[in-house]
Design a binder for these strands. Structure first.
Lengths: 330, 330
DNA sequence: CCCCGGATTGTGAGCGCTAACAGGCGGGGC
DNA sequence: GCCCCGCCTGTTAGCGCTCACAATCCGGGG
């Protein structure tokens, strides 16, 4: 195919290749003739042939779990955009489950396809450790997980976000803050819970037992029904906004007004959070940025002298809305 | 690389290839030796080389817009899973905007990468028509759009979903039903609006002016503030759940209880809808299934005798919850 | 006027794999 | 006992591109 262009332009195939790759030392006139021939024939270079000889597929892989949720979906979006502007294609592989085998399988699949690097958007402890083992032949970075692993990681500072949320509630006069945590296998859950606990301890506040959900509104609702039955609750920090939504409804149904009786703070700041009843005070996490940074990291690792293990942390930001108010019996 | 395996197994590279591709006429003993050598060397076939000679990349492309929303994200997920089980990889390209040029660009990009087919998850009128023009060299199918275009399409039956929602409200005794529509460029918006209008007309009910939103909770909230000011509103059908959420809050703030004073019905049944205040009656649309079917269609088109233009429609399903109740002044 | 070095272009050799076509082996039919 | 025909395996060509290495052309210095 490239030969056709060469013939039409009256040059060798190599010159066509040079024009395509922007090599130096091509006379402007020649370049123009080649370009014209390319346009004339609507020629498109064959990426497989190029990949075969250069050993570079121009493709990066993304492993993701629960990619229908807002967070993962946004990260994927951020990754794709960043990849495009860095000149890469993006191939995705969803995980069925989060066990090590499944992660292994997805990464292998991607590798077989020839990806040059992989971003893992699977913030569960088991997944991350599984990935760490796989990193053999291609660079891997993890995103969104507060990883304590041996691979480069981009994450929001969950601990400080949780601290900010808890302190906010304490500052409003609440004696203590309850916590509705995410599932235990997730690094996010652990870090947020730790941030919450520390803040309470630092303030000398009582540390109540934590409720555990699975990130879903349903689980927040169920936990909320239990929490609504407790007399001494005046503030709850939820590990994410979806659970906060469920909690809000349970509280509403149990006749415990928010923030009049109980204050609630979430985490993530999904676009809908501002429209909950009442609008949710929460901790914003910029998922798109997270994805972008992860990709930058991966590209840097691909291109460059191998850096030491890198760990990027992005600061979250508190968003104050009406769901958190002053303590009622201060 | 394949040569190494061949040498170790004491066969020719072609025999290795045969084993890899499950070709017939390979003696079991030979096959085992090859397999052992493959395992021993941890050999992985080079996909670029294979793609070069077979002219098949095993890769399908997905063009998507607003992929951070629940619907598109779920479709992408469905597509990926279906693609994997059909033996394909999936490469994604997000659109920055929905104009024809942008779509063209994304499809070209994918084509340059060598995808064998493309699924477009961009349900806007302009996008679909743009895609129809591009379909030149690779098969393309659209998903999620109520396409009236020349390309194969998988979509939910938006019209009948809207009809069901509207009739439900009418059956509850409401004299008429207001409509909060999606943005005008979207096929979904148009079909849902049409279903709503028809049902009203068929029932001899007055057809109120429609409010228009942009799918976001914010736009639903703003429209809701206006609607709350209208005295004669007793039922509202929203074109999606996010807008319904915003509407619910506006109504709540304006002291118009749902469903006591006004009934609300949404569309999509996002996982959170059951936890709105009050739980949202809505029309469920199975996005994952949509994605799966789209992929099946694409694969069929790739593999087979070219079918005529196909159009798959999936029936949506009403989900009754508390946000819609009997008319108060029947 | 000839030689040299940089600019410009062409030639040959694969990248790792599959497709197409041999070739070699053994058993059944005559 | 010989031939034909299935099995099984090997050999030879590329797929379309880039890389390494010439080859050619040009102007200025000696």
């Amino acid at each position: 195919m490239m030969a056709d262009v060469a013939k039409l332009a009256g040059v060798s195939h190599q010159t066509v290749s040079r024009v395509l790759n922007g090599a130096p030392h091509v006379r402007p006139g020649t370049r123009d003739r080649v370009l014209a021939a390319i346009r004339e024939l609507d020629y498109r270079p064959n990426s497989a042939a190029r990949a075969l000889v250069t050993r570079r597929s121009q493709t990066l892989g993304v492993v993701s779990f629960e990619s229908t949720l807002y967070g993962p979906a946004s990260m994927l979006d951020g990754i794709e955009r960043a990849a495009r502007s860095a000149g890469y294609f993006v191939s995705v592989a969803s995980l069925r489950s989060l066990d090590a085998r499944s992660v292994q399988e997805a990464v292998d699949r991607l590798r077989d396809q020839g990806v040059e690097g992989v971003v893992v958007v699977a913030p569960q402890t088991s997944a991350v450790s599984a990935v760490a083992k796989v990193s053999s032949s291609v660079p891997v970075v993890a995103v969104g997980s507060g990883a304590r692993s041996s691979i480069p990681t981009v994450t929001v500072d969950n601990r400080s976000g949780a601290e900010a949320a808890t302190r906010q509630l304490l500052d409003l006069g609440h004696r203590t803050v309850h916590h509705l945590a995410g599932p235990s296998g997730w690094l996010e859950s652990q870090d947020r819970q730790e941030g919450w606990r520390r803040t309470l301890e630092a303030a000398g506040a009582r540390v109540p037992a934590v409720a555990v959900g699975d990130w879903s509104a349903r689980s927040g609702y169920e936990a909320g029904q239990r929490i609504a039955g407790l007399a001494d609750v005046s503030a709850v920090f939820c590990a994410n906004d979806h659970m906060a939504l469920g909690l809000l409804r349970a509280l509403h149904e149990s006749g415990r007004p928010v923030p009049g009786d109980i204050s609630v703070v979430g985490f993530d700041d999904i676009p809908e959070a501002a429209y909950f009843i009442p609008p949710l005070t929460t901790v914003r996490q910029d998922f798109g940025e997270l994805g972008r940074r992860a990709l930058e990291l991966l590209v840097a690792e691909l291109g460059g002298t191998d850096h030491p293990i890198t760990r990027v942390q992005i600061a979250p930001e508190m968003v104050l809305r009406r769901s958190a108010g002053p303590a009622h019996r201060a």
